[in-house]
Structure formats: C-alpha cells, structure tokens
Amino acid sequence: MKFAPLSRFSVPMLSVAALTLLAGCGSDYQKPSYVDPNAQGQVAGTGIESQDVNAAAMQAAQSIINIREIAQAAQPPIIIITPVQNKSSSPVDTSLYTSILRDTLLNNTGGKVRFIDRTTAGFNQREQQMQEAGEVGGPAAANRAALTYNYILTAELQGIAMNSSQGQSDYFRIAFKLVNKNDELLWTNAYQIKKEGKESAVYR
C-alpha cells in the first residue's frame, strides 16, 4: 500500500484524461451522401432553404386555383411569374427560388392556369428570323404568336433576423400576389417560417 498516493488517484485521473483526449481525436471527414432535397439538411442554419420555398409554393398553388378569376374562368388564364424579390435579411439565390416556385405551381395547379416563360423568347425570335430568311429548313415559316398574360404573379421574401449571445432566430414571410393588367390586386397568400438556433459558445 506504499504506492497508494500514486495508484489510487493517478489511474482514474489518467483514465479520464485519456478518454477525454481520445474522444477529441476523431477525423472531421464525412463521406458524401444523397439526402432528400425536401428534408432539412445536416448543415442547416436558421436561414431559408429550398424546402421552405417548395412548401410555400405548394400552399400558394392550392390556394390560387380556388380564386374566382381562375376557378370560374372559361379558359385557363395565363400567368407570368416575375423573379422572386428578396427583401429579407438573408442573401438568397432568387433565380433558383423563382424556378422552384414556377415548377411547383406548374405541377400543382391541375391545368387550371397556364404559365408564360420568357426565358426562351429570344431564341424563338431568332429561329423565326432564320426561317423567314430561309437559313433553316423544315416546315414553312409561320408567324410567331407569342402569348400575352392575363395576370402577373409576384413573390416577395421578407424577413427579420435576430442575433444575440443567447442565440439567433430568423423569421421569413413569402408573400405571393396576383395582379391583373389594370394593377388590381386579386389575391395574396403568405407563408411564414420562423427558425431558432444557437451556435456553440465558442463562436459567441
């Protein structure tokens, strides 16, 4: 028992130290894996994500087909979607969000509305000109009759961000508006998201 001071205290102490240190020696490598794009990601923060925009667009699609101007229209009205406007406190890829919005609406309104896509208008115009000039073969040139729209659908992302030593939160509101050619507001729909989180204390 003459070594009691060493053996009694040092072994547990060293074991604890060893476990602590061993626990801290892990690699930070993580093999890439496929994840559901509609699920919250592993690297999530409190910002808006693609699944939020998807959910907002889904809600808007279900609402918009029930308004009188669309539900009772003799022919499916034609809608043009303007780019998402970001008025929040988070930089977002507005182009991507506009695409998500357009796709979700297009695929979830059951043919009750039609959408205009002007992104290919320039290409179509050039093709028409080449046909008229006889530069390309195929069917005889027909007059291009680009559609005009009945309504404009706009989407605006608004938000408030809070940050403190206790944590952070982000509130987002995705507001949709349907406006006719006389600037009359026909329909609005808003989808709200609020996220809270706290970073590790070593970053605060």
């Binding site: 801290g24 892990g26 592993q42 999530a44 923060g45 988070s90 970073e199 590790s200």
Partner: peptide
C-alpha cells in the same frame, strides 16, 4: 450561417 458546420469540432475545443 450553418449552425451545424463544425459543431462537433467546436464542442471539442
């Protein structure tokens, strides 16, 4: 912006 990026390493420190 990600709360989880590096969270494990942050806890270690």
């Amino acid at each position: 912006a990600s709360l989880q990026a590096g969270a494990e390493q942050a806890e270690r420190t």
